[in-house]
Design a protein around this nucleic acid. Structure first.
Lengths: 146, 146
DNA sequence: ATCAATTAAATCGTTTGCGATATAAATTTT
DNA sequence: AAAATTTATATCGCAAACGATTTAATTGAT
């Protein structure tokens, strides 16, 4: 048995597990808001800057448009966002928040950060551990993204 | 705009992105072997210890059986593993490697670790950074898994 | 200006991941 | 032992991800 192929030695498996578990920790709050985690990501992008084309949202989330387009279509059906053809470039679809989508920011702010703090209260990591983690993850992300 | 809701301040988004990007980095090698990343995880579990029930594999990968069962069914169809009912407990399905599944370990060992090393060569992280990262991820995983 | 190449979205098909539920076998309770 | 509960898998439905392809609009080249 090659040690390199042991699950315990895999950073990738840890990232995969930690990512899924944190997403699962968000789920109860997101379900209360009626959204999923990827939809929450799209909303965060739009809360920072409204009226963006699909491509910019996809780029920000490091996703392909073939993932973002259906995601956005579902969000439109739910009344969170609207789409309209771009003025300068008619290939673009400009995505904008509805009043419902805008209003959800405040609800998310009240609900999610305190709940996540509670959920991670038992975690021994300190603030500088999280900052360190963020830096290490950014290194990996920047190395691997095209 | 609440700072807590900015994408840049989200550990979760970093984990999600890093996980997807590393999985994508594995993909060319896994495609050459004819498998996917979750299938590779199942194989690693079985390379460490063959003949395990679905439940143990799911537990090891921190997945539910409703994810692992169809995954294993596809792997069976591809001839990588076999399933047989448990002797003591007839509810169990014992999963075992076929010769093809066993032989794949050596091919994976030749192919994957060197390619991933190359892929991460440009990453500024050092060995102790990775060890640190592993410890931090384990903290999060242990805090959040039931 | 015309034709070719690029770009922005969308569509299609497959594999995951997971909540909810079903089924059958084993265990516990009464 | 019969009934109730728990446990191991499996099934179903839906939302991601993503490779591959398509369509329409824009840009670049001749």
């Amino acid at each position: 048995m090659h040690d390199e192929l042991k699950l315990n030695n895999q950073i990738c498996f840890r990232l995969y597990s930690a990512s899924r578990l944190i997403t699962q920790a968000y789920t109860p709050m997101l379900t209360a808001l009626g959204i999923t985690y990827p939809q929450y990501l799209v909303l965060m992008v739009l809360w920072e800057k409204d009226n963006q084309p699909v491509n910019d949202i996809a780029h920000r989330l490091i996703l392909e448009t073939n993932t973002v387009t259906p995601l956005i279509q579902r969000m439109e059906k739910q009344g969170l966002i609207t789409r309209k053809q771009g003025d300068k470039d008619k290939r673009q679809q400009i995505v904008s928040l509805t009043q419902i989508g805008k209003a959800m920011e405040e609800r998310a702010y009240q609900l999610i950060p305190p709940a996540m703090l509670g959920r991670l209260a038992a975690c021994p990591l300190q603030l500088d551990d999280y900052q360190n983690l963020a830096k290490e993850l950014d290194s990996i992300i920047n190395t691997l993204k095209k």
